[in-house]
């Protein structure tokens, strides 16, 4: 239908783009991860696995990697738990104001990440809204310190920021459930609760998997929330990568950690793709 020359000219620019800005930098980073830095701070192009060994062997990296995964897992759980009922309510039990509610879920996505992170800072801080209110109401006598600069603050903020990402695929999956299936279920004698468990939950699973993957992957690689609200106990793996590429000037180790994260994320995406395919019924 299209000539060979036409096809070549159409596909060439994106190919060049991907090669120049994706494949090449990644390849370079991958090479970096096998190099090392001398005591004087110069790059040594000797190939070895020392960086990967350090990553697995040193307690601080292992622990931070685990903590990041644990934070991301909690964010994933809370984001799904929050967005599932919301999506269900919106998709199946809202007629009036459906668009408005939908927009209210989406609008936070338009607000700058920094603004939202700082907002939590003013809420959770020692003199923050939450602590002053609690003391004013005589529920507490001292400011609660675990609220800010803790994994708790990071999980809370990331949940707030990434819940819309979990919500959207869940909501889309529910909107795609043919309504005559719900009627068929009622017709066959199932109550609303039975219909929920037997029809709506299984048919919305692909959306849940997609939403959970979004929440996990995005929060696993996040570095702003731990930077602003995490404190020393809330440091995540991306913060270490940032410092290795910056102040510590150890690009090889930073590259090795980045590639570990990438491998983890790709494995996760592959798994979620498999699950979604298995649960894509029609």
């Amino acid at each position: 239908m299209f000539s060979r020359a036409y096809k070549t000219w159409v596909t060439l620019p994106p190919l060049v783009w991907v090669a120049a800005f994706l494949v090449l930098p990644y390849a370079l980073m991958f090479a970096y991860s096998f190099w090392s830095v001398s005591a004087a701070g110069s790059l040594r192009h000797t190939w070895n696995f020392a960086n990967y060994g350090q990553l697995l062997g040193r307690e601080v990296y292992r622990q931070t990697l685990l903590r990041s995964a644990w934070i991301a897992a909690r964010v994933m759980l809370f984001a799904v738990l929050l967005s599932y009922p919301l999506a269900y309510l919106l998709s199946f039990h809202t007629r009036k104001g459906k668009d408005l509610l939908y927009q209210l879920v989406i609008i936070p996505l338009w607000v700058s990440y920094l603004v939202r992170a700082y907002a939590w800072k003013t809420i959770l801080g020692t003199d923050g809204v939450l602590n002053t209110s609690l003391q004013y109401l005589h529920i507490t006598t001292h400011p609660l310190h675990f609220l800010l600069y803790s994994p708790f603050a990071v999980v809370l903020t990331l949940t707030h920021i990434y819940t819309p990402f979990a919500f959207l695929p869940v909501y889309a999956a529910m909107e795609h459930i043919p309504r005559n299936l719900i009627e068929a279920s009622h017709d066959l004698g199932a109550s609303a609760l039975q219909t929920f468990w037997r029809v709506i939950v299984p048919l919305s699973m692909p959306g849940v998997v997609a939403g959970a993957t979004f929440a996990f992957v995005l929060s696993f690689g996040d570095f702003l929330a731990p930077l602003l609200l995490g404190g020393p106990s809330g440091v995540m793996i991306s913060n270490i990568v940032v410092s290795l590429f910056g102040a510590a000037y150890n690009w090889p180790l930073g590259a090795a950690i980045s590639f570990c994260m990438l491998a983890l994320v790709i494995a996760l995406l592959w798994l979620s793709e498999r699950l979604e395919k298995r649960w894509a019924w029609s």
């Binding site: 043919p178 005559n180 299936l181 009627e183 068929a184 279920s185 029809v199 299984p202 048919l203 649960w279």
Partner: peptide
């Protein structure tokens, strides 16, 4: 039902 409405899962 008109389009049978069988449960796909």
């Amino acid at each position: 039902f008109q389009n049978y409405a069988l449960f796909p899962h």
